[in-house]
């Protein structure tokens, strides 16, 4: 059964910040959902191959040709912050 520690761990992996109330709520709700999901164990899948895509597809290959791509200014048009044609983010290394 999922507990608050598991919720905190998953939140950390997913870069989500939760307050105490949310942690309690998600522990309960996700617990109920996973409890429902546990019914999958009733089905025998020992010799079953997993399916990722339901429509049969082999490796999809194409010629490696140069085509038009988005101009830089269009790519940067939605950037919250940019400088000299680059996306700018807060500093990663601490002082």
């Amino acid at each position: 059964m999922i507990d608050k520690k598991d919720v905190e761990y998953a939140a950390g992996l997913a870069q989500l910040k939760l307050d105490e109330e949310e942690k309690e709520k998600y522990t309960e709700q996700i617990g109920e959902i996973l409890n429902y999901v546990d019914k999958l164990s009733e089905l025998d899948t020992d010799d079953v191959v997993p399916t990722a895509y339901t429509v049969p597809m082999k490796n999809v290959l194409r010629e490696d040709q140069v085509k038009d791509s988005l101009p830089r200014e269009k790519s940067l048009a939605n950037a919250p912050d940019e400088k000299d044609g680059h996306f700018r983010a807060p500093k990663i290394m601490s002082d």
Binding site: Q15, L16, K17, N78, A79, P80, D81, F87, A89, P90, K91, I92, S94
Partner: peptide, 19 residues
């Protein structure tokens, strides 16, 4: 918050910016 969409104004460093 890096390339498009919302970016929080409340961020001292990159990790806080993400969360």
């Amino acid at each position: 918050g890096v390339r498009y969409g919302l970016r929080s104004e409340q961020a001292a460093d990159i990790s806080e910016m993400f969360t």
